[in-house]
Measured scan of single mutants.
Amino acid sequence: QAPETKIVDKSRVACDGGEGALGHPRVWLQIPEDTGWVECPYCDCKYVLKGSKADAL
């Protein structure tokens, strides 16, 4: 199944896999201003900063 994409309001987000005990260790991710998105290294969930150029795609 394809990784999930989430639109977020802040450039710093936490990801834990979203499945409680079945998820992964919580990691904090920083969305770079130049790209407007970041992917979780564990679950490949893509976080897109709302209003960024990546959000316009």
Rank of each mutant, 00 (worst) to 15 (best):
P32L: 07
P32T: 05
E4I: 15
V8L: 01
A54N: 05
Y47K: 08
G18M: 14
C40S: 10
P32S: 06
A2W: 12
R26S: 05
Y42C: 13
E4G: 15
K50L: 07
Q1S: 12
T35E: 07
E33L: 13
D9N: 11
E4D: 13
I7N: 01
D16E: 12
D34C: 09
V27P: 03
L57G: 13
Q1I: 12
H24Y: 05
L57E: 12
E4M: 15
D44Q: 14
D9P: 04
I7C: 05
S52A: 05
D9L: 11
Q1T: 13
G23N: 06
R26G: 03
C15S: 00
Q30R: 07
A14C: 13
G17M: 04
K50A: 12
A56L: 13
L57C: 15
D9M: 09
C15E: 00
V8R: 03
L29H: 04
K53R: 07
A56P: 14
K10P: 01
A54V: 05
W37I: 07
S11M: 11
A21G: 08
E39T: 12
D55T: 00
Y42K: 13
V48H: 07
G17W: 04
I31W: 04
C43A: 00
H24E: 03
V13G: 02
G51L: 00
S11W: 07
P41D: 03
K10C: 10
R26H: 06
D9A: 08
T5Y: 15
E39Y: 15
G20F: 05
G51F: 00
Y42S: 09
G36D: 04
D9Q: 08
T35Y: 06
A54E: 08
A21K: 09
A14F: 13
R12L: 14
G36V: 04
G17P: 04
G18K: 10
G51W: 00
L22P: 07
G17T: 02
I7Y: 10
A54I: 07
V13M: 02
P41R: 02
K6H: 15
Y47M: 07
L29I: 05
A14D: 04
E33Y: 09
Q1G: 11
A21E: 12
P32C: 11
D16V: 11
L49C: 15
G36F: 04
K53L: 12
K50T: 09
P3N: 10
L57D: 10
D44W: 14
C15G: 00
W37E: 04
R12E: 11
Y42E: 10
A21M: 08
R26C: 10
L29R: 01
G36K: 02
L57I: 12
E19Y: 07
L57W: 04
A14N: 01
D44H: 15
D44A: 15
V27N: 04
E33F: 10
D34E: 11
A56G: 09
E33H: 05
E33V: 10
G23W: 13
V27G: 02
S11I: 10
G17H: 02
G51Y: 01
P32W: 05
G36Y: 04
K53V: 12
G51E: 10
V38M: 06
V13K: 03
D34P: 02
V8S: 08
G51R: 00
I7H: 06
L29D: 02
G18I: 05
K50N: 11
T5N: 05
V13E: 02
A2M: 14
T35W: 06
K46I: 14
D44K: 15
A14S: 09
V8D: 02
P3D: 09
E4N: 15
A54L: 06
W28H: 09
V38N: 03
L57H: 09
K46A: 00
A14T: 07
Y42A: 09
H24A: 05
K6G: 04
E19Q: 09
Y42R: 12
E39L: 13
Y47F: 15
I31Y: 03
I31F: 02
V38F: 01
P25F: 09
V48R: 01
D34H: 07
V48F: 06
G20W: 03
R26F: 05
P25E: 11
V13S: 03
A56T: 14
Y42I: 14
D55P: 04
I31Q: 01
I7T: 06
G23Y: 06
R26P: 13
V38Y: 02
E19I: 10
I31C: 08
D16C: 14
L22R: 14
V13I: 12
K50G: 11
D44E: 11
C45W: 15
D34Y: 06
E39F: 14
K10I: 10
C43G: 00
G23V: 08
C40A: 09
V38C: 00
G51A: 05
K46N: 09
C15T: 00
S52G: 12
W37C: 01
A2N: 11
G51H: 02
V8F: 01
P41M: 07
K53E: 12
G20H: 05
P3V: 11
A2V: 10
G51T: 05
C43Q: 00
P3L: 10
Q1W: 14
C43W: 03
C40T: 09
A56W: 14
E4W: 14
K6Y: 06
T35L: 11
K46C: 14
G36M: 04
D16R: 06
G20K: 03
A21T: 09
K50H: 10
E4Y: 14
A54C: 14
P41H: 07
I31V: 01
G18R: 09
P32R: 03
L29A: 01
D34K: 04
W28I: 10
V13N: 03
E4P: 13
P32I: 05
G36H: 01
D34I: 03
D55L: 00
C40Y: 11
T5G: 08
D44F: 15
V8H: 02
K10H: 12
A14M: 06
I7M: 08
V13L: 06
R12W: 14
R26I: 09
K6C: 07
R12Q: 11
D34G: 05
A2G: 12
K10Q: 12
D9I: 09
S52W: 00
L29V: 01
D34S: 07
Y47L: 12
L49R: 10
P3G: 11
A14P: 09
T5R: 07
V27L: 06
D16A: 09
P25T: 10
W28E: 08
D44S: 15
D16T: 12
P32H: 08
K6R: 12
L29G: 02
D16Y: 10
D44T: 14
D55F: 00
D16P: 05
A54T: 05
K53Q: 12
R26L: 11
L29K: 02
G36C: 01
W37A: 04
G17E: 03
V8T: 07
L57A: 13
E39A: 13
W37H: 02
G23D: 02
D34F: 05
C45V: 15
G20M: 03
W37L: 03
D44R: 15
L22D: 08
V38I: 11
A21H: 08
W28R: 05
T35K: 09
K50P: 11
S11A: 12
K6T: 11
E19T: 08
Y47C: 14
V48M: 05
V8G: 01
V48Y: 08
T5D: 05
E19W: 07
L29Q: 02
D44G: 15
G23C: 00
G20C: 07
G18L: 07
G18V: 03
P3K: 14
E19R: 11
A54G: 06
E33T: 10
S52Q: 02
K6W: 02
R12N: 09
K53T: 11
H24W: 05
L22K: 14
E4K: 15
D9G: 06
E19K: 12
S52E: 09
G18Q: 08
A14R: 04
R26Y: 06
G51S: 03
A56V: 14
L57Q: 12
E33S: 06
T5L: 11
G18A: 06
E39S: 11
A56N: 13
D34R: 05
E33A: 11
D9R: 07
K10M: 08
T5C: 15
K6S: 07
L22W: 08
G20T: 04
T5Q: 10
D9T: 14
Y42G: 02
E19F: 07
T5F: 15
L49Y: 05
